[in-house]
Nucleic acid binder design. Structure first.
Lengths: 324, 324
DNA sequence: CTGAAAGCGCTTACAG
DNA sequence: CTGAAAGCGCTTACAG
C-alpha cells in the first residue's frame, strides 16, 4: 500500500488520464521496486479479452511451418498479443481437441496451419465462438477466413519454365493424394501439359508424403521407367531432397541428366548441392497475413475474404535443358 | 440452468467424487449440448495455477530450436499444459521483456532456449517468481536448472575421429565468440589437438555467426591459406552448409579434397550431398528433459541439477582420409 | 451428495 | 482526480 486505493493503482499502472501525473509516477515507482506484476489472468476475466491467440500446426519441426509461425509471432508481438502454440501431428481429432482447449483458454482468435480437418470435423470448428483463420488448409471448406498460396498459378509457372527449357517428359512427385494443395499443384501440372500439347502420362505421376524419406520410393519408380522423365516437379522441397538423393543413387547427375524442381523455397534450399530451383512461398509473410486477418476481425471489419498469395519461381542450378 | 447450482456444475464437470453419478452425467450432457466451455482463466484465478508454460526462443525458424520446441510441446501436452511461445531475436532486452510478459500471464514455468542473457540481465531473470529452466544457455550463470549438450565431450569425439582419419591440419569454424557453446566446442577442439600432439595454429580458428551466410567468408579465408586445412570442424550444421558451398566454389570436392564436420544433426543433414558427418544433439529429447525438469519443480522435488546430455558422433560421407 | 458463501485480482462505471 | 462497490466466472472449504 502506498496511500491510495486499489482503483487508483490500477489506473496509474494503465496510464489512465484519470489520475494525476505525480501520483501515477509514484505508484509506478513503488510497483517497480516491489516487483509487482499485474495479473493478466485477472484482467482477462474482467475485460473479456485475453490478448492471446492460439496457433495450431501439424508439426512445428517442419521448416515451412516454423517460417509461418515466425511471421505470426512477430506480428502478434507487435500488437502485444501472446501466442499459444500446439501441435496436431496432422491428426484431425487432435486438431479439434487443441482448438477446443484454446477456446477454454479464451484466446481471442485461432490460426490453423495446413489444417487436416476434413468434412466431418468442419462443423466442430465452425461452431466455435472464436474467430478462426486457416492457412494453407488442406480441405476446401466454408471457412470465411483463409490465407493460401496460389498453388495452380505457382505450379503452372514452374511447369512452363521446364517446358520452355525443352522438357517433354516431366514427372509430378506429389504428396499423399486427397489434400487440397496436392490436388491444386497437380492441376497446374496437368494444365501446363495441356497448354503445351503434351500427353498426360499416368506413369509419370507418383505420390510421396511430403517428406524426404517418403519421396525416395516413388522417385525410384520414376527412374526405373523404360522412358524415365527428364525432369521431376516435386510437391515440396523436402520431397525434392528425397528425390535428389535417389537420383544420385542411380548414378545420375542433376541437372545434366535430370532436372528437379521443388516447392516452398525453404531457407536451406539455396545451400543444397546443387542449389534447388523451386517455387517460393513467402512463409513469414503468409503468417503475417493470417495474423493481420485476425486483427481485422478483432477490429470488427469482417471482410470474409479468402486471401491468395502468389508463389514465385526461383531458378537455381537444379534445372537445365534436357540431354538430347 | 439444469436444476442445480453453480457449485454442483463445477463439481460435475471436474469429475469430483462429491457428486452423484447420474447428476454428473446429466450435467455433462447438458453442458456438451449447450456448447459450454469452462473458462480456464477464471479457474486459474482461483486455483493459482495457469497450467501454462512459457517458452522463449531466439528464433523459431532455426531448425535446432524448432526440434527442441517440438519436444517441449509434446511433453507439455501429455501433462495438459499449454505452451506460450515467444521469439527474442537473440536480443537480451527482448528476452527479459518476454519473460516478464510470461510472468504477467502467470505461467507456471519458463523455458529459455539458447539464452543470450548476459551477466547484466541474470539478476532480472533470477528474481522472477516463476521457475526457469535454461536449455543450452549461452552464458554461464548461477541458474539452478539447466539442460545442456555436453559440448566438450562431443567436439572431442568429433575431433578424435578426424585425427584418427589422419588429419593434421584441422580448422575450427566457430560461432561468434563470447558464447558458451562456442567456447566449449572450441575447448574440445583445442584439447583434442593437444592430446594428439598437434600444434594449435591460430589461423585455423575462424568465426562465423552460426548461419550459412556467416560461414562463407571465414571458410573462404581458410581455403585461401598457404597451407589450407584438410578438414573443417564447424560450430553447427548451418555453418557447415555455408562452408560446403564455399568449398565447392573453390573447385574442391568433399570429402576427397577436404572433410567437413557439423554439429546438431539437423533433420536435413542426412539428405545433403554429400550427407553430413556431424554430432547429433537429441533436440527433441532435450526439450523433453527441460519440460520434465519443470514438472519436477512443480511437484516440489527441486533437485537443482544441471543436466548434461551427451552428443553422438554420426559418421556419414562428408569425411574421409586426407589426400596425401 | 448438494447448496450458500467467500474470494481469486483485477477493471470500470458511479459518486463525489 | 480519487474512492467505494460491483462483478468477471470459476473453485472450494463450510454447513447441512
Amino acid at each position: 500500500m502506498a496511500g491510495v486505493t486499489h482503483s487508483t493503482v490500477s489506473r496509474a499502472l494503465r496510464n489512465s488520464s484519470l489520475v494525476s501525473l505525480q501520483t501515477a509516477e509514484r505508484i509506478q515507482r513503488i510497483a517497480r521496486e516491489a516487483g509487482y506484476r499485474t495479473s493478466a489472468v485477472a484482467r482477462s476475466l474482467v475485460t473479456g479479452r485475453s490478448d492471446t491467440i492460439g496457433v495450431v500446426v501439424t508439426n512445428i519441426a517442419d521448416p515451412f511451418i516454423a517460417g509461418v509461425v515466425s511471421g505470426i509471432e512477430e506480428t502478434a508481438d507487435e500488437h502485444d498479443l501472446s501466442v499459444f502454440l500446439a501441435n496436431s501431428n496432422a491428426e484431425p481429432e487432435r486438431e479439434v481437441r487443441v482448438a477446443r482447449k484454446f477456446e477454454e483458454r479464451r484466446v481471442d482468435g485461432i490460426i490453423v496451419t495446413a489444417s487436416r480437418v476434413g468434412a466431418q470435423y468442419v462443423p466442430l470448428l465452425t461452431h466455435m465462438q472464436v474467430p478462426i483463420v486457416l492457412l494453407n488448409n488442406q480441405h476446401p471448406s466454408q471457412f470465411a477466413h483463409s490465407v493460401m498460396i496460389d498453388n495452380v498459378q505457382a505450379s503452372l509457372d514452374a511447369m512452363r519454365y521446364l517446358i520452355r527449357l525443352g522438357h517433354r517428359r516431366i514427372a509430378y512427385l506429389g504428396d499423399r493424394s486427397g489434400y487440397q494443395s496436392d490436388a491444386e499443384r497437380y492441376q497446374g501440372y496437368h494444365q501446363a501439359l495441356r497448354e503445351a500439347g503434351l500427353p498426360l502420362e499416368p506413369s509419370l505421376t507418383v505420390h510421396g508424403d511430403g517428406k524426404p524419406e517418403g519421396a525416395e520410393a516413388p522417385a525410384a519408380e520414376l527412374l526405373a521407367l523404360l522412358q524415365p522423365p527428364t525432369a521431376i516437379f516435386c510437391y515440396n522441397d523436402l520431397s525434392a531432397l528425397g528425390a535428389m538423393r535417389q537420383v544420385r543413387k542411380h548414378g545420375l547427375r542433376i541437372p545434366e541428366d535430370i532436372s528437379v524442381v521443388g516447392f516452398d523455397d525453404l531457407y536451406i534450399s539455396q545451400y543444397l548441392n546443387p542449389p534447388l530451383t523451386t517455387v517460393r512461398q513467402p512463409m513469414r509473410q503468409m503468417g503475417r497475413l493470417a495474423m493481420e486477418t485476425l486483427l481485422l476481425i478483432f477490429a470488427g471489419s469482417d471482410s470474409g475474404d479468402a486471401i491468395r498469395v502468389p508463389g514465385e519461381l526461383i531458378v537455381r542450378e537444379s534445372t537445365a535443358h534436357p540431354r538430347k
